[in-house]
């Protein structure tokens, strides 16, 4: 299976600080790759570099054979990369349905959207996604009033509405209760049958439930990559990361 996303020798410097230092990784189609690492390892910066929010100092990101480094956020998004943010970013003043409707970004041309009022495909897709993330009863609710867990699911739902080939999820279970984490794991396990996912996560229990491949970052570089078993037995990883947690 081909690599859907290839990161080669990525480098990002803030003045003299090397936040990302010669980082490379390949993501295989239809796998769920967890990106883990201690605070400040550069996980979120890597996400920013992939999605165009920040420009790398050097190195390249290739998505399905196209070099996407240097493109802006919307161009990269249109290529089929969806992103969920670390701090849930939903449109708080809009209803859940409207949030999903905005996220249905098959038509991005502003002039065409002026004359677009409702679309049956969009409505059908909203029902489908709402069911997938368990928000079908909450569609009429203003997003700002959702609970934290629901907000996280809504944002996952929004990324799904976009129908991207590759989803980047930044800490999808941060602040969730045990039941909510379980439900999210179910959602992600269903998703990875049809999508490629990169998930940034701290919670090793959650990683164990969902990951096909685990990539460990440390100080902006790749520390180790492998299955969860390989990573958990890797002494280097234990030293810098797992050792600090209650394992």
């Amino acid at each position: 299976m081909a690599g859907v996303l290839e990161i080669q020798n990525l480098q990002k410097n803030f003045d003299a600080v090397k936040v990302i230092n010669d980082f490379s990784m390949d993501v295989i189609e239809l796998t769920l790759c967890c990106l883990v690492g201690p605070n400040g390892a550069g996980k979120t910066t890597t996400m920013d570099l992939i999605t165009g929010r920040q420009k790398p100092t050097s190195g390249s990101v290739t998505f399905r054979g196209h070099v996407i480094t240097g493109e802006n956020e919307q161009m990269i998004a249109r290529r089929g990369l969806g992103r969920k943010f670390q701090i849930p970013a939903v449109f708080r003043e809009l209803t859940v349905r409207q949030n999903l409707e905005v996220a249905y970004s098959h038509e991005v041309n502003a002039l065409k959207n002026i004359f677009s009022f409702s679309s049956r495909q969009c409505d059908a897709r909203i029902d489908e996604v709402a069911e997938q993330v368990g928000l079908q009863e909450r569609l009429a609710v203003i997003a700002g009033t959702l609970s934290h867990g629901e907000t996280q699911w809504l944002e996952i739902g929004m990324v799904l509405m976009q129908d991207p080939a590759l989803l980047l999820l930044d800490e999808p279970v941060a602040g969730m209760t045990e039941q909510e984490i379980e439900k999210t794991a179910d959602i992600l396990n269903t998703m990875k049958k049809t999508k490629t996912l990169i998930v940034v996560e701290h919670d090793m229990g959650f990683v164990r439930e969902i990951a096909d491949i685990v990539t460990v970052m440390h100080m902006g570089s790749l520390l180790a990559q492998g299955t969860i078993q390989e990573i958990e037995t890797n002494q280097q990883v234990r030293d810098v990361y797992l050792g600090t947690e209650d394992h």
């Binding site: 999605t51 929010r53 802006n72 956020e73 919307q74 998004a77 249109r78 969806g82 992103r83 943010f85 970013a89 939903v90 449109f91 708080r92 003043e93 809009l94 409207q98 949030n99 905005v102 996220a103 970004s105 991005v108 502003a110 929004m158 976009q162």
Partner: peptide
């Protein structure tokens, strides 16, 4: 209206 709430989120959905 969505970009009034959060322009960055709208950009990441592919809109200019």
């Amino acid at each position: 209206r969505a970009q009034n709430n959060d322009p960055e989120r709208v950009r990441f959905l592919g809109y200019n």
